[in-house]
């Protein structure tokens, strides 16, 4: 699949935003977070910016962004529509929660229920995003059982990393969040490895022979493409990254996205100096996010669309 830049930025950014929102909602519910209004404003604000920025970027991918509102209508069948509905729905409890916390200064009790609702919706939104891909049987690399957990884990991981950054910035040191981040990084990294393993060992179901139904005559090779220049489908679905590049990129992703954050997080918990540990945590979040961007890019670049069997 041709990696769509706006889609990569969208899923990375709003994934982190929803992850952050989810953590704020859940942890807030159990009173595990500072209650400071400014902290709330910055943390929720960051989630808001990541989510909204991502969503806006995603409309760049649309031919007719001005009609984007129409995408809310088909939630009964379309994961993309569900994603849109959930994304927007998340704003409602999120804003109420923000009012309670930031303006009224009461993140707990009554208002925290809205935080929890926002958290649930945030997770659901990420799940819907994942399901857009996971439900496409036309792209076997996406239609795996690992796609959904990977999306969720990565959202939580990047959310946790950025939450840790905000906490640090306010001088809080939260072992809990640090541990959540570390666990999320490990889990996400493992899930991603399992994902790769699964796509590398997946049994090939559709082949040029089954696509054309000509297998009984022998191996099928393309003699002539329909037009001399690439067609829309070939341009959109035809992107194929060379095996050796993808191996390298996978290693980079694992290194930058998971290993580096892990080491930095560990180092951060080891150093005393809050400035240095803060810096280390910030770098961990940055690396994690960069890793997710390459991961997303690879997610597209490694994915082969069955329609390309005709070409």
């Amino acid at each position: 699949m041709h990696p769509a830049f706006s889609v990569i930025i969208f899923t990375t950014s709003s994934g982190a935003g929803y992850g952050l929102m989810a953590l704020l909602g859940f942890l807030g519910m159990f009173g595990l977070l500072p209650t400071s209004q400014t902290f709330g404003a910055v943390a929720l604000g960051l989630a808001f910016v990541l989510i909204t920025g991502g969503l806006l970027t995603s409309t760049l991918h649309l031919g007719h962004p001005e009609r984007a509102w129409r995408a809310f209508s088909q939630w009964r069948s379309s994961w993309l529509s569900r994603e849109g509905v959930l994304a927007v729905a998340t704003y409602v409890p999120m804003v109420i929660f923000a009012i309670g916390w930031v303006i009224l200064g009461e993140p707990a009790q009554f208002w925290s229920w809205f935080g929890l609702a926002a958290a649930v919706l945030a997770v659901a939104t990420v799940a819907a995003t994942a399901m857009i891909y996971a439900s496409l049987v036309t792209i076997p690399n996406w239609a795996t059982k690992w796609t959904l957990p990977v999306y969720l884990a990565l959202a939580v991981m990047t959310g946790a990393l950025w939450l840790a950054v905000v906490l640090c910035a306010f001088g809080y040191s939260s072992n809990l969040v640090g541990n959540v981040a570390i666990i999320a990084v490990i889990v996400a990294g493992l899930l991603k490895r399992l994902y790769w393993q699964s796509i590398d060992t997946a049994v090939v179901v559709s082949t040029a022979e089954s696509a054309t139904g000509l297998g009984h005559l022998g191996a099928v090779r393309v003699l002539e493409q329909p037009t001399t220049s690439a067609t829309y489908v070939m341009r959109e679905m035809g992107y194929r990254i060379a095996r050796k590049h993808s191996d390298r990129l996978r290693r980079i992703t694992l290194g930058v996205g998971f290993l580096v954050p892990l080491i930095l997080l560990a180092a951060a918990s080891a150093v005393e100096n809050p400035l240095i540990s803060g810096l280390l945590i910030f770098l961990a979040a940055l690396a994690g996010s960069l890793g997710v961007i390459t991961e997303r890019w690879l997610f597209f670049a490694e994915a082969k669309h069955v329609s390309m069997l005709y070409h």
Binding site: G63, H64, R70, A71, V137, T138, T231, Y232
Partner: peptide, 25 residues
Amino acid sequence: LCIGCKLCSWACPYGAREYDATDKV
């Protein structure tokens, strides 16, 4: 009604959908 999200073309196994990049649908 089409917003040009191209998802339908991703969902088509047969490569039968054609995006008009000028009309953007």
